[in-house]
Simulated assay, not measured.
Amino acid sequence: MYTLIVILHVIVSVALILVILLQTGKGSDIGAVFGGGSSQTLFGSTGPTSFLSKMTAGAAIIFMLTSLFLAYFSGTGGTR
């Protein structure tokens, strides 16, 4: 059980990092106005914001739950 939670924790950590890096920043549209590069994003300008924010929230919840379980298991000592 402990190994399964550690594996899930690592997978969710990597997924959380990737989902956060895919999101655009709040000031990304201002750079496009002043000619600061191309304004093309991976998913369009406003399309996936709700999907990516839901993915971020879900991954964060799973990350917190696995962190709590791992902290509990490490505090119980040898009774895993």
Rank of each mutant, 00 (worst) to 15 (best):
I17G: 07
G78T: 15
A60F: 07
T56S: 07
P48H: 11
I30H: 02
M64G: 06
V12N: 00
Y72P: 01
A57W: 14
F63D: 03
F69L: 13
L8K: 10
A60D: 07
F69Q: 00
S13W: 00
A32L: 04
S38K: 11
L4S: 12
F43N: 04
G27Q: 09
L68Q: 07
Q23F: 01
G37A: 13
V14K: 07
G31E: 13
T41I: 04
L18D: 00
T49W: 04
I20T: 15
G31N: 13
G35N: 03
G35K: 01
G58T: 02
I7V: 14
F69V: 13
A60P: 04
A57Y: 14
F63I: 02
M55N: 03
V33P: 03
I30P: 05
V6P: 01
K54S: 13
L8Y: 02
F73C: 07
L18I: 15
F73H: 07
I5F: 01
A57V: 14
I7G: 09
L65T: 05
L52M: 10
K26G: 05
A57Q: 14
L70S: 00
G37Y: 05
G77V: 03
G35F: 06
S50E: 09
A32D: 01
Q40K: 15
G31W: 01
I30L: 12
V6K: 10
L18R: 06
G77F: 05
T3L: 14
T24W: 01
A71Y: 05
V33Y: 02
A15H: 06
A71M: 13
T79E: 13
A57F: 14
L42Y: 06
G37Q: 11
L8C: 01
G27T: 06
S13M: 01
G35P: 04
M64V: 08
A15V: 10
T76S: 15
V14F: 11
L21C: 08
K54W: 14
A57S: 13
S53C: 08
I7E: 14
T3Q: 15
S13D: 05
L22F: 10
H9C: 07
T41L: 02
Q23N: 00
T66I: 03
T46E: 13
G37D: 09
A60K: 01
Y72L: 09
V33C: 02
I20D: 00
P48R: 14
V14M: 08
M1Y: 15
